[in-house]
C-alpha cells in the first residue's frame, strides 16, 4: 500500500476519485444498540492526507461511527476498512467473522484517538503518558521514546510540563498532552472525538490551533466536532450526519452553500 501522507493539493480533490486507495473506506456500516439502530448504513471514504470533519446533532451516531473506526465500538453489518484492513472482522464467504482480540489490538496501533474527556492516564506524568505506548506497544528503547516524547510535547506547547501529573494541568493542556500521546504512536490516521467539547472557550483555541497545525502537516484526520468555523477552516470535506446516516458530504464551500438542504439548514441554524 502506498504510504502517502502528503496532503492532496486543494480542497475537494480528495476522495476515492483521486485514484489512490482511500485510507478509510466505510461501506454500508450498520450498528445496533440492542433494538436501536444507531448507524443505518454509513458509506464514506477518507483519502490519504485528507481532513474530514463530521458534524451533526448529539445522537446522530457521529461519535459511534468514529469509535467504530478503531474498534472501540463494533459494527454489525457493512464493511469498514482502514489501510485496506477490514476493521474487527475477517470475511469468510461473504460473512463477517470477529477477529481475535490480538488482531484487533494490532489494527489499533496505527490509529490515534483523542477523546472528549482527554483520558490521560492520571497516575503517570505527562511525559510518561506520551512514552507509554512507544515503549510498551512499539517496544522502542526508552531513550528514543523519551527524546521523541519531549519533542512532541514541546511541539504542542507543553515543554515545561514533562513531569507534571495530568490533574495539575488545565483542560486545554491535558488535551494537548493527549494529542501528543496519540502522535507518539506515529499513527497513519488520527481520530478526534469532540476534542474541545469539554473545554472552556479560552482553552478551546489553543487545542484547535494544535489540530490545525497537524492538518497542515498532512496528517489524515477524522474530526467529530461542533466547532463549525473550525471545521470550515481545516477540513477538506465536511460530512453532516443525521439519524445514523450521512445526510451530505462536501467540501466546505459546497457544504455551507446548500441552501436547498432543509435538514442541514435547520441544523446550522441551531448551532450558530
Amino acid at each position: 500500500m502506498t504510504e502517502n501522507l502528503q496532503k492532496q493539493h486543494g480542497k475537494g480533490t480528495s476522495g476515492p476519485e483521486t485514484g489512490l486507495t482511500p485510507l478509510v473506506l466505510a461501506d454500508g456500516v450498520r450498528k445496533w444498540f440492542g433494538h436501536l439502530e444507531v448507524l443505518k448504513g454509513i458509506s464514506l471514504s477518507v483519502s490519504h492526507g485528507e481532513v474530514l470533519s463530521i458534524v451533526g446533532r448529539s445522537g446522530s451516531g457521529k461519535s459511534t461511527f468514529l469509535r467504530c473506526i478503531n474498534n472501540l465500538e463494533t459494527y454489525q453489518d457493512g464493511r469498514l476498512y482502514v489501510a485496506e484492513n477490514l476493521i474487527g472482522y475477517r470475511e469468510v464467504n461473504g460473512k463477517l467473522r470477529a477477529l481475535p482480540t490480538r488482531a484487533i489490538v494490532q489494527q489499533r496501533r496505527h490509529i490515534g484517538m483523542v477523546f472528549q474527556q482527554f483520558n490521560l492516564f492520571w497516575h503517570m506524568t505527562v511525559l510518561e503518558n506520551v512514552i507509554e505506548g512507544p515503549i510498551r506497544v512499539l517496544n522502542e528503547p526508552r531513550e528514543t521514546a523519551v527524546e521523541r516524547g519531549r519533542e512532541l510535547l514541546i511541539k504542542v506547547g507543553l515543554g515545561d510540563k514533562f513531569d507534571s501529573y495530568p490533574m495539575k494541568l488545565s483542560g486545554g493542556q491535558q488535551q494537548r498532552a493527549a494529542i501528543a500521546r496519540a502522535l507518539a504512536m506515529q499513527p497513519k490516521l488520527m481520530l478526534f472525538d469532540e476534542p474541545t467539547s469539554a473545554l472552556d472557550p479560552e482553552t478551546t483555541g489553543e487545542v484547535l490551533a494544535v489540530i490545525a497545525d497537524l492538518a497542515q502537516s498532512g496528517m489524515t484526520m477524522v474530526i467529530v466536532t461542533h466547532e463549525m468555523s473550525f471545521a470550515q477552516r481545516v477540513s477538506d470535506r465536511i460530512a453532516f450526519m443525521e439519524e445514523g446516516l450521512v445526510n451530505t458530504i462536501a467540501t466546505p464551500d459546497a457544504f455551507f452553500g446548500q441552501s436547498d438542504n432543509k435538514s442541514l439548514q435547520r441544523f446550522l441554524a441551531t448551532i450558530h
Binding site: 490515534g112 505506548g133 496519540a182
Partner: peptide, 11 residues
C-alpha cells in the same frame, strides 16, 4: 475512558 485510552494506543 482510561481503558479506552489504553486500547487506543494499542495496548
Amino acid at each position: 475512558g482510561q481503558i479506552e485510552a489504553a486500547k487506543s494506543i494499542g495496548m
